[in-house]
Nucleic acid binder design. Structure first.
Lengths: 112, 112
DNA sequence: TACTTATGGTTCGTATATAGAACATAATTA
DNA sequence: TAATTATGTTCTATATACGAACCATAAGTA
């Protein structure tokens, strides 16, 4: 990690992070859990939970998802399709697509 | 970080991560982008993009969201409510809830 | 009011995720 | 088929997220 380039995020991503963090906070308060309790059950520090609830982009996604799951949040609004169904669908799509994305194929008619 | 406790993830979280990574990969291939291209546009390394597409829990959530956004994925299936609307709703809920979760209030009738 | 507890914000040391390069393999094209 | 390119994987050095221990403030309770 030689270069230290500060990361930038689109407003959409930041909004999504804030939303997810806010939902987590709401779920925690709705369940009458203290930050300490949730942090312990999730196996993380209270400080990290605070960052998660704030929507800090620099958190492990696995931990964020785990906390959300712990509090009963649905990560994927499975209105009709279940998560597993979604996964199966994903795999199907992947098998149909070419395994490598071949670029402009440096062909002959490139000299126009 | 003195102690090194390996993190554990619920199957639901792992499925969600795999799903998100798979959707990202599908979107990338559908758009005919090479991993190199997407990584460059996202300002990350190709190796990190691979881990993201694999659903590695130990990635910054901000980067994952950013890549997803870059490829046009909707992080929150805004069937009816927009993201911003969701956010407003979140804030409303938060203002209604007590700001601190007060625990069992260590009262008198605790000696049963 | 005073008391208790939750929350928010530091700082510091360390475990670890990351970038970058290198290499091998797989996949597509001519 | 050969040639080219994408992908997958491993390695090392470094930037940084994390846990832990603080303190200050806010918020709920008696």
């Amino acid at each position: 990690m030689p270069k230290s380039i500060p990361r930038t995020y689109s407003s959409y991503s930041r909004d999504a992070l804030s939303l997810l963090g806010g939902l987590i906070r709401i779920a925690r308060k709705a369940g009458k859990f203290t930050a300490q309790e949730v942090a312990e059950r999730a196996g993380i520090s209270r400080g990290l939970l605070q960052r998660i609830e704030k929507g800090d982009p620099k958190c492990e996604i696995g931990v964020v998802f785990e906390v959300a799951t712990l509090l009963g949040l649905k990560l994927y609004d499975a209105d009709q399709a279940t998560l597993v169904g979604h996964l199966r669908h994903t795999e199907e799509k992947l098998t149909l697509l070419p395994k490598s994305v071949r670029k402009t194929t440096r062909a002959v008619d490139d000299d126009f």
